[in-house]
C-alpha cells in the first residue's frame, strides 16, 4: 500500500518536534550548568559566624574569650581585653586585693583607664571566679594520659 504523502509529512514534523524539544532540554541544561553561580568562598569565611556567636556560652564558659559566664563578665571583657587577651586574666588567681592592686598597677604603668562604676562589678566578678585555692608546697602529679612504653 502506497503511504499517504500527508501522513508522511505529519510523521516527519512530529519527529522534528521531538528532536527540537530534546535539543532545547540538552542545551538549556548545559547552559544552566555552565552559568550556575559558583559558591562564593567569601561567604564561607567563618568571621561572620564568630561575630554572630560572640555571646555564645557553653558549659558556663563564654566561648569567644574563655571567661566564666557570670555577672560582671561583660564589663570585664570590655575593659580587660582591649590591650591583652582574656587568657592573661583567666590563667591567674588572685584575692580581691590582688586584683585591685593589678588594676592599679596597670593604670599607673600600662595606660589602663579609670574603670569608673565598672570597677566594682569587675572586682566582684574576678575575685569570685578567679580566686586562689591553697595548693600547698607541692601538688600531686597529674597524668593527662597513661600510655604503654615499649
Amino acid at each position: 500500500m502506497k503511504p499517504n504523502f500527508e501522513e508522511q509529512i505529519k510523521a516527519f514534523v512530529s519527529v522534528l518536534a521531538i528532536f527540537l524539544l530534546l535539543m532545547l532540554v540538552l542545551f538549556g541544561g548545559l547552559f544552566y550548568v555552565a552559568n550556575r553561580k559558583p559558591k562564593s568562598h567569601v561567604e564561607e569565611v567563618p568571621v561572620e559566624d564568630s561575630v554572630e556567636d560572640f555571646d555564645k556560652v557553653e558549659n558556663g564558659i563564654h566561648v569567644a574569650t574563655g571567661f566564666i559566664d557570670d555577672k560582671g563578665m561583660q564589663a570585664t571583657i570590655q575593659n580587660c581585653t582591649a590591650c591583652h587577651s582574656a587568657k592573661l586574666v583567666t590563667q591567674n588567681r588572685m584575692s580581691r586585693e590582688g586584683w585591685k592592686a593589678t588594676i592599679v598597677w596597670m593604670q599607673e604603668t600600662q595606660n589602663l583607664w579609670d574603670l569608673g562604676t565598672n570597677e566594682e562589678p569587675i572586682l566582684n566578678y574576678l575575685s569570685k571566679n578567679y580566686a586562689p585555692t591553697d595548693k600547698g608546697r607541692r601538688q600531686n602529679l597529674e597524668v593527662a594520659e597513661w600510655y604503654e612504653l615499649n
Binding site: Q91, T102, P132
Partner: peptide
C-alpha cells in the same frame, strides 16, 4: 604556676 599563694603573670 606552682607557687602558693599564686603569683601574678603567665602561669
Amino acid at each position: 604556676s606552682e607557687f602558693n599563694p599564686p603569683a601574678k603573670g603567665n602561669q
